[in-house]
Design a protein around this nucleic acid. Structure first.
Lengths: 190, 190
DNA sequence: CAAAATACTTACTTATTAGTAAGTAACTCT
DNA sequence: AGAGTTACTTACTAATAAGTAAGTATTTTG
C-alpha cells in the first residue's frame, strides 16, 4: 500500500467540490474526504493545511474555469442562445445529482467563512455576472435576444433563477427546475 | 438565579430561527443557543429533545404563519400588487440582517437532514407556492398583473429570484437584491 | 549512491458536538 | 401542608472535529 500518488491532491479537490455541492461546507469533514479516498485525514492536511485552504483552492479552480469559458465565448461565433445554453448546462447537471452550485452553497454558509474566501467568492461572482451580462448585451444588440431590464439586472434574474432553481429541485423535484429553465430561455427569445 | 421562566421555549425558537437564517443549520450548536440565552445546553434539550426536533418545531411555526397569511390574503380586498408586496417584504427584511430565508437555508443543507424534516419542508413549499400562484392567477384575471408563463411557473420564477436574491445580497450587496425586487414587480405590472 | 524532497501513516491533542442522568428550586394543585 | 409537576443546573459521556508532530517508505536529484 501507499505507493506515491501524484493525483491525490486533485482527487481531494474533486471530492471536496462534490461534498460542498452535496452536503455544504459545514457538513463534511477531512475524515469524510479521507474515508472516500482510502487515505488518512492527515494526508488531506498534507495537501491542504486546513479546510479554509481547501475551499480557497476550490474557488480558485472555479475562477480559472470561468475565465477559460469567458475567453472561449468571446472568440466564439456561437449565437447568444447557444452561449446561454452552455452557461445553463452545468446547473442542469447539478440537478441530476441533487447538488447545488458552489455560489449558492457558499452563500448559505457565508457568515461562517473566513474573510479570504469571502473576497474570492465576490470576485468569482463578478466574473460570472460579467460573462452573462456581456452575452445578454451582445445578444440584444444582434437582435437575438430581447429583455426590458438592464443587462446587469437581467443577468441577476437569470442567475438567481438558476441558483435557487437547483436548490428548489432538491425539495420539490426536477420538474420545477425544468419549468424555470425553459421559461428563462423562452422569455429571452420572444 | 433560575426563576421559572415560561417563555424560554419561545426564546429558543427565536434564536434558533435567527441562527438558521444567519449561519445555517449545520453551523450552530445547542451550546450557541444556550450561551445566547444565558442558560445551559441541557435546558435547550429539555425543551427540544434534539436539534431535529427544534428544526421541526421551527418549520411548524413557519407553516402556521403562512397558513395564517394565506387566510388573510384570501379574505382581503388588497390588490394583487399589494399582496405580492406583503409577500416580498420579509425577504427585504432578511436582507437587512444578512440573513437568508429558511427555505433556502434548508435547501442548502437538505442532504444532511432527517426524513421527517424533508417531508415537512416539502409541505411548506407547496403552501407558499400555492399562495403566490393563487395571487398571480387572481391578479391576472382582474387585469392587475400580466405574465406569459403559467401561474405556477411564474411563481417559481419569483420565488427563486427572491430566495437566491437574498443569498446573493450577502456577497455582492443589497443593491443587487433591490434591482431584482424592483424588476420583479415592474415586469408583472407592465 | 547518498541526501533531500515527496507523499504519505501513526498516534496523538484539544475543542466541540449532541445528548443524558441525576439532582434541585420553585410553583401548582389538592 | 404535602405531592406532583415544571424548568431548569450540574456533571458527566461518547463521538467527532480540526489539526499536528514525528516517523516511514518511495522517488528524485546532485
Amino acid at each position: 500500500m501507499s505507493a506515491r500518488n501524484t493525483d491525490t491532491k486533485e482527487e481531494i479537490l474533486r471530492i471536496g467540490k462534490q461534498f460542498i455541492q452535496y452536503y455544504g461546507y459545514n457538513a463534511f469533514s477531512y475524515a469524510d474526504i479521507a474515508r472516500e479516498l482510502n487515505i488518512k485525514n492527515a494526508a488531506v492536511h498534507y495537501h491542504f493545511r486546513g479546510k479554509e485552504d481547501l475551499l480557497m483552492a476550490l474557488v480558485d479552480n472555479y475562477i480559472e474555469n470561468y475565465q477559460a469559458i469567458a475567453k472561449q465565448l468571446k472568440n466564439s461565433k456561437m449565437g447568444a442562445i447557444g452561449k446561454l445554453d452552455k452557461f445553463i448546462e452545468p446547473y442542469t447537471n447539478l440537478c441530476e445529482s441533487d447538488s447545488i452550485c458552489i455560489i449558492g452553497s457558499i452563500a448559505s454558509d457565508y457568515n461562517t467563512l473566513p474573510e479570504s474566501v469571502k473576497e474570492k467568492i465576490t470576485y468569482l461572482i463578478e466574473l460570472v455576472m460579467g460573462m452573462v451580462e456581456q452575452t445578454l448585451s451582445e445578444g440584444k444588440k444582434k437582435g437575438e435576444l430581447q429583455f426590458k431590464e438592464s443587462a446587469r439586472t437581467q443577468a441577476l434574474l437569470i442567475m438567481t433563477n438558476l441558483a435557487a432553481g437547483v436548490q428548489l429541485a432538491r425539495i420539490s423535484g426536477k420538474k420545477d427546475y425544468d419549468s424555470i429553465r425553459k421559461a428563462l430561455i423562452r422569455q429571452l427569445k420572444m
